[in-house]
Structures are given as C-alpha cells and as structure tokens.
C-alpha cells in the first residue's frame, strides 16, 4: 500500500466532522488526522503538523471569506480541497482563483471524495462536474477567455458525462479532453494569481464590515445571508 494521505477537515458542523471520521475510518490510505471549526483554530492547533490535504467547508459561519480562507491555508504549504453543501458559484470561483486544488459538493459518495483527495494529494487538479458547471456558467465580464473547444468540453462534462463520454461527444481523444479541463482550471488559477488587488479587496471588505458592526441593528454581510 502506498503512503497514507493525511487529511484535515475544517467545518463548523460537528455532526459532519464526525460523519467524515466514520466514513473514512475503514479507508487505509486516507486518514483524518485533524479537525477544526475555523481556519484560525486549525492554524493555531495544527499549523505545524504534516497535513497533505485540507478539506475546507466553503461557507464557514464565522463570516470569513472563502477565498481568504484558501489563501491563508495555502501559506501553510498545504493543498486545499473545497467542499460545500450548496455550490455558490461566485464563492466557488473565488476559491479556485485563490488557488484551491478543487471543489466538490458534500452529496458526493465516498469513492468520489476519496478519488478527489488522492488526486489533489498527488498534485493533480480535481474538476468535478459541479466545478465544471460553475466554470461553464461563469458570466462575469472578466472571466478567463476559453477557446471554443475548451468551452465545449467543459459544457459536456458539466452535464454529468464521464470524461470518456465527453471526449467521444466532442470528437477528441480522452487525453485531449483531460488536458482541456486541466487547462481551464489552470486559466482560473492563473487569473487569480495577481492577488494584490484581491487582498486589498479583502481588507476593504473587513473595514466595511467593521463599519457595519458599529451601526446598531445591522448585520455583517456574510452572517445575514446564511
């Protein structure tokens, strides 16, 4: 058996963390070695541990920004796989642009989750159908430009077809389809690389929230919505 992948899970739903432990317990090559409710808690208690992959819940209820959470975790040198119950397109895209290795929804079965964990642990990228859907329905004017072939492969794969079936439908080789998907993912990560402006935005967001906190009766933006 190959080496064991050490996984940490950050989620504020205690039940889900327990479920995840129970789920992964019988699996030999993937071990949950740490859990935390917030990124800050994780960094304080496990920042120095050897963790290969962090499973990060997209919408933590402490009001932190998903993309900022990814950035903070990446500074610790780990790989981040974003998971969520509901795919909020805007935030999902932001975490990928911040450098997350992949995104999957929590309704996936165990084999799909394990597959994703093993892939990102090996340095690969995970383009799940749900992430492909977020890419293919990205309507922001500053979205990364995709070639027509990339857009076609993305759209077919986002509809739930296997990569093999996607390649057949697009009339290209399997390896080419794989390469198109990876390239799309790379374009997103690269478009997010000049993070100066983004960190500025984060700072501005924080200031805005503080200002909101000062006004009685108002709710910080992230806590009101969910």
């Amino acid at each position: 058996m190959a080496r064991v992948v050490n996984v940490a899970a950050i989620d504020d739903d205690q039940m889900l963390l327990q479920g995840m432990r129970a789920w992964l317990a019988p699996v030999d090559d993937v071990a949950i070695v740490a859990t935390a409710a917030t990124v800050t808690e994780y960094l304080e208690r496990h920042g120095g541990d050897r963790i290969d992959v962090v499973l990060l819940d997209l919408n933590l209820r402490d009001g932190t920004l998903p993309a900022e959470n990814v950035t903070r975790l990446l500074r610790g040198g780990t790989v981040v796989l974003v998971v969520s119950t509901i795919g909020d397109r805007e935030h999902v895209l932001a975490t990928i642009e911040a450098g997350a290795a992949g995104y999957i929804t929590k309704d996936n079965d165990l084999p799909a989750l394990l597959d994703a964990i093993r892939t990102v642990a090996d340095g690969g990228v995970v383009v799940s159908p749900e992430l492909a859907f977020a890419f293919s329905t990205d309507r922001r004017p500053d979205r990364p430009q995709l070639s027509p072939q990339e857009a076609l492969v993305l759209r077919i794969y986002a509809s739930g077809a296997t990569l093999q079936a996607t390649a057949r439908k697009a009339g290209i080789a399997y390896g080419t389809a794989r390469e198109y998907l990876d390239r799309v993912k790379r374009k997103y990560t690269e478009s997010g690389r000049p993070t100066h402006s983004k960190l500025d935005l984060v700072d501005r967001y924080r200031e805005d929230r503080m200002r909101l906190d000062d006004v009685p009766g108002t709710v910080p933006p992230d806590q009101g919505s969910r």
């Binding site: 995709l146 070639s147 759209r155």
Partner: peptide, 12 residues
C-alpha cells in the same frame, strides 16, 4: 441554448 460563451463576448 446551453452553449457556454467560451471565447466569445461573454455578455451572458
């Protein structure tokens, strides 16, 4: 029509 904008205008 379900097509992703891809390289086109992306007006969406």
């Amino acid at each position: 029509d379900g097509s992703a904008e891809g390289g086109s205008d992306g007006s969406g």
